[in-house]
Computed example of a mutant assay.
Amino acid sequence: MLVREAMTSPVVTIPRTATVRQAIRVLHEHDITALPVVDEAGGLAGIVSEMDLLRGVFERDPRAFARPVATTANPVPRLVEEVMTREVETARPNTDVATLADTMMRTRIKSVPVLAGAGIVGIVSRRDLIAILARGDARIRDDVLAAIDEYGPDGRHWDVSVQDGAVELLGGDADEPARRVADILARTVPGVTRVSIQGHT
């Protein structure tokens, strides 16, 4: 399965010149946990997470939720570019989801922007990965069969079984090209973790 099939798109972004408070409102309104930060040309400048924004509020003013005190001059609001992460792990639409998931687990990154060229075309979060894994085996089986029926070689019959996302294809009359096509099609289905092809005994 490829990243383009798992990512959330279109992406909600925030300008680097937005204030921390504005970014917090955007996260809350869209029920998301991180925002790619863009520069004036729309390119990726960084990423800002819930934790970055909370630190931006509380480290600047530990009394952020205390009763307001009248002052003669209010401080300039902290900007997103001051609290964002600049070194961003990114992915491409044709990256394998398993490879990206391994990177996210190893680095403990929660969200990864997806780039096509210099443009931001999507984002993959832990929530997206969980949604894929939550798909039931029966639905995965139906989707695998539908993909093979629609795009596979004409008249080819496959028996499909799915256990915890692992797909087993049984097609004794399939030649090597047909087996490769079936393998590729099965891997495109959301929720598939592994594919094996067996011949009839």
Results as ranks from 00 to 15, higher is better:
53 L>Y: 08
199 G>R: 14
32 I>E: 04
28 H>I: 10
169 L>C: 07
66 A>I: 00
28 H>A: 14
15 P>L: 03
8 T>E: 04
7 M>K: 02
8 T>G: 05
63 R>M: 11
49 S>V: 06
41 A>C: 04
173 D>H: 11
20 V>R: 00
191 G>P: 01
151 Y>M: 09
75 P>Q: 08
138 A>W: 11
93 P>T: 00
152 G>Q: 06
173 D>P: 09
140 I>F: 10
102 D>F: 10
68 P>Y: 09
128 D>P: 07
12 V>T: 11
45 A>C: 02
193 T>H: 09
118 A>N: 13
79 L>T: 13
106 R>I: 04
156 R>Q: 15
13 T>D: 01
136 G>D: 11
43 G>E: 15
100 L>W: 01
149 D>P: 00
175 D>Y: 03
56 G>P: 04
172 G>H: 02
60 R>L: 11
2 L>T: 11
61 D>P: 02
125 S>R: 08
8 T>N: 05
196 S>D: 12
71 T>Y: 08
15 P>Q: 06
3 V>S: 04
93 P>G: 00
35 L>R: 05
69 V>E: 13
56 G>N: 06
127 R>G: 11
43 G>H: 13
162 V>K: 08
189 V>F: 03
40 E>N: 10
186 A>C: 09
22 Q>Y: 01
83 V>Q: 07
38 V>F: 07
44 L>Q: 05
196 S>M: 13
69 V>D: 06
14 I>N: 02
198 Q>G: 10
58 F>Q: 03
24 I>Q: 11
177 P>E: 05
48 V>M: 00
155 G>C: 08
153 P>R: 06
91 A>L: 09
124 V>Q: 07
100 L>D: 06
46 G>D: 05
54 L>C: 09
40 E>S: 13
87 E>C: 09
82 E>F: 00
127 R>Q: 13
26 V>P: 01
95 T>Y: 12
188 T>L: 14
144 V>W: 00
114 V>Q: 03
171 G>L: 03
61 D>R: 10
153 P>V: 03
57 V>Q: 03
6 A>H: 01
